[in-house]
Design a protein around this nucleic acid. Sequence first.
DNA 1: TAGATTGTTAATCGATTAACAATC
DNA 2: TAGATTGTTAATCGATTAACAATC
Lengths: 220, 220
Amino acid sequence: MGSKTISSAVIKRLPRYYRYLGDLLENGIERISSKELSIRMKVTASQIRQDLNNFGGFGQQGYGYQVRYLHDEIGKILGLDAKQSMIIIGAGNLGTALAKYDFSHIGFRVAGIFDVRADVIGTEIGGIRVSSFDTVEVFLKEHDVQVAVLTIPRSNAHEAAERLVKAGIGAIWNFAPIDLQLDSNIVVKNVHLDESLMTLSYNNMHKGQERLSYSSYMDG
Amino acid sequence: MGSKTISSAVIKRLPRYYRYLGDLLENGIERISSKELSIRMKVTASQIRQDLNNFGGFGQQGYGYQVRYLHDEIGKILGLDAKQSMIIIGAGNLGTALAKYDFSHIGFRVAGIFDVRADVIGTEIGGIRVSSFDTVEVFLKEHDVQVAVLTIPRSNAHEAAERLVKAGIGAIWNFAPIDLQLDSNIVVKNVHLDESLMTLSYNNMHKGQERLSYSSYMDG
DNA sequence: TAGATTGTTAATCGATTAACAATC
DNA sequence: TAGATTGTTAATCGATTAACAATC
């Protein structure tokens, strides 16, 4: 069902559409054409129409797109209406920050926090008690969790990931600087902050040699 | 000088090469061919050779590449040998996590932390006193800072960015969910965590409809 | 209806992969 | 020298942009 493969380039643009449509909603704008949206977003109108038509015809000739409708449809495509849960593995600096961050606007909530360090287990972060990582298998049996957030040192990341997968996790948001080699049906999304900073460094050093600001919107 | 524009696709791959070469170094491996590296990294040998040859001929026919040399050269290309400083704007959850993170392995250090909230100013994070954002212009006059890290709410992000630019900042690592519209010679790198989570959500919902695990290495 | 704007096909552009001559 | 592997050119593939007929 619905099996046409959609390129990852398109998928990566969806959240940005979603954000711009949300902004339009907030400003009380009810309809928009691909042309006008393209001007605001600094992309081509062609690209917007091509992207959207991967998922269906959301617009109307001569009229454009209804902002509310398109916004909500993209939200559904992204699964934001699904009320998903995630657990955070590693209550260090980054794990703590993410645990305190409110992801409810995109349908996510933190269901649990885990760590291996005795001095961290039992402390509270954002109203959630940190549990021993040894209890994660039991926890996953008892709770419906879609995503595991990996904010632990590189050295432990692979072993932890394999345990999580064995315990039934299907998606990992990985902040450890490592390429996880897991079963092909496990979805992994890497956020490598140091690599992000390195590309910023490169672009800053080599400034002026290329048109930077214009093509940088999707380089998030 | 050296003005051939290099595509951002190539730039984004450099940090990953750097990481793999660092791993090889740690394992005492002194030379590697594009073929063998391609197997480890799950990319084509062609791509590795094409990418590297954007910057020069680092290898030797019949031999391959010297790991130490190539690693250090890529480090230089990325500017990691430059000892750069950054300031963190916004001492919230994420700003605090980044302030405590050790970026010295890629040549960066945190020179200052700024916030507008009276109850936060004066507290200490990772050994650095949080200063009033109103003092940032003076600070930037007195210190050589390459990067400003923006970890503040969306509503303040644009105004803060403009002040930083006016005060001489040339590069912004932006964590606020907004597209900053700044002078074209300002380098902006966005890290939109919620958008990252949304694409993870999408891939998880639509799992099995495409070959996910294989093409996901660069989707960080 | 006439004007506007979509959905979609065709053309272009750029990035990736393959091939191979150069050379260590 | 023979074998290996690069640097680089050529072929392929995929993504973006342009064009336009369909239609609201």
